[in-house]
Design a protein around this nucleic acid. Structure first.
Length: 111
DNA sequence: ATTCTGACGTGGG
DNA sequence: CCCCACGCCAGAA
């Protein structure tokens, strides 16, 4: 599978696999897709993910665990609310225990 | 067709 | 330790 899928679709596939209450970074996904230096594209893909309902973009943050794209969500802190709703503690756009909640597709999926 | 921008990341000073 | 600049590639104007 995933042969007809473009870069965006691949990102969606990975994002969909992110476990509940877990988070990952754009760079991690990009690296998993083989586009290590193209972390930006992952974010761009996420932007288009608005079309996809199964893509939990709120679980994807930058490598610092900051909700950089929260402004792109409906409200201003909808992203934070969604994360907290999953048990993720977010303070001032910063995910607490980010290292602990971090989910690396390269390590977990690594298919 | 060209130009610019963008939800990042890494490296260098 | 903090600040600045560059790289990456795809979509939109």
């Amino acid at each position: 599978m995933a042969k007809d899928l473009g870069f965006f679709q691949k990102v969606y596939e990975v994002a969909k696999v992110i476990p509940y209450g877990r988070v990952t970074s754009y760079g991690a996904i990009a690296r998993y897709l083989g586009a290590a230096g193209s972390a930006r594209m992952v974010g761009w893909a996420m932007n288009a993910s608005h079309n996809q309902d199964d893509v939990p973009a709120h679980r994807v943050v930058n490598r610092l665990g900051l909700l950089t794209g929260k402004h792109h969500f409906s409200g201003t802190n909808l992203m934070q609310q969604l994360l907290e709703s999953e048990g993720v503690v977010v303070i001032d756009n910063q995910i607490q225990d980010f290292e602990k909640l971090f989910w690396d597709p390269t390590l977990e999926l690594k298919s």
